[in-house]
């Protein structure tokens, strides 16, 4: 593998891995607090699947000599993380445990729905990737996306169609998530090289397909398309992050960081 090519592979893998890790970390915080007991159980499986996907990507990085999977997942500081900012954001205001957590289900549904819709388009593209191991894991991960998409699409449709307060909350969540959903589509400052290396199709192509999906759904539900996907808080791929990420990393690495060298 040429060093330049390897660099692009690594860059893209970090984006994919960190996205799945952060969104599933936020999912794990919901466990036990979801609006409906049956949904609590269902959502947790999606969270586990997604953390499993992160694990798969980190394993590819480990094979490329980047270090142990758990070091990659737990010990990299915020500045080195490549996830989109919208995925690191808290589930809602208030400390996640006994400090008045007010988790926002509308935000969670919208964030997850848009995330899975983009992930599906990315995975389809990765199935043609020039990097064989990535092509193989894309085929694997693709098997679990249909459930994730159906699950979040169903919640999205029903809460929008419910009208009243639910519809208003969903619209507000759409507006909020849209401001930063561009960060998930972003391939970062090295996009050109990543695309040139044939690892994945361009941001523009992925965006067009995602907008096509969303446009169709929005038309069906009578929702207004919010325009261009934004990246208001910055590009996580370029190392821009918020305090929410710092907080998340502190939590998720609290135990592991006590002694990363030993089995737990």
């Amino acid at each position: 593998m040429k060093p330049q090519y390897k660099e692009e592979v690594i860059e893209l893998l970090y984006q994919l891995a960190d996205d799945d890790l952060l969104v599933s970390y936020r999912g794990s915080e919901w466990l036990g607090l979801v609006p409906h007991i049956e949904e609590d159980v269902a959502y947790s499986s999606i969270t586990q699947n997604t953390m499993g996907h992160a694990n798969i990507y980190y394993s590819l990085l480990e094979e490329l000599g980047e270090g142990k999977v758990d070091d990659l997942a737990h010990l990299r500081p915020a500045g080195e993380r490549k996830n989109a900012i919208i995925l690191e954001e808290k589930n809602g205001p208030g400390h996640w445990l006994y400090g008045e957590p007010r988790y926002d289900w509308a935000f969670t549904v919208v964030r997850n729905y848009f995330y899975e819709a983009i992930k599906k388009r990315k995975i389809d593209s990765l199935k043609q990737s020039s990097y064989e191991p990535l092509r193989q894991v894309a085929v694997k991960i693709d098997t679990e996306i249909p459930y994730h998409l159906m699950h979040w699409r169903t919640w999205f449709e029903q809460l929008v169609r419910a009208g009243g307060e639910a519809e208003e909350r969903m619209k507000a969540a759409v507006a909020r998530v849209w401001e930063d959903i561009g960060g998930v589509l972003s391939l970062g400052p090295n996009e050109e090289k990543i695309v040139e290396a044939g690892l994945i199709e361009s941001e523009a192509v992925l965006k067009e397909r995602f907008l096509e999906d969303i446009n169709k759904k929005f038309t069906e539900l009578g929702l207004k398309m919010p325009g261009e996907p934004g990246m208001k808080k910055g590009d996580g791929r370029a190392g821009f992050h918020t305090e929410d990420l710092e907080e998340a990393l502190a939590q998720l690495s609290e135990v592991y960081a006590l002694n990363p060298a030993v089995p737990w």
Binding site: S28, E29, G32, V41, M51, G52, H74, V255
Partner: peptide, 18 residues
């Protein structure tokens, strides 16, 4: 659950609490 030391432990305790 979110603090479990490794990805394996995170997944396992999540599955257990689930």
């Amino acid at each position: 659950t979110p603090k479990a030391p490794t990805l394996y432990r995170k997944l396992a305790i999540m599955a257990k609490v689930q």
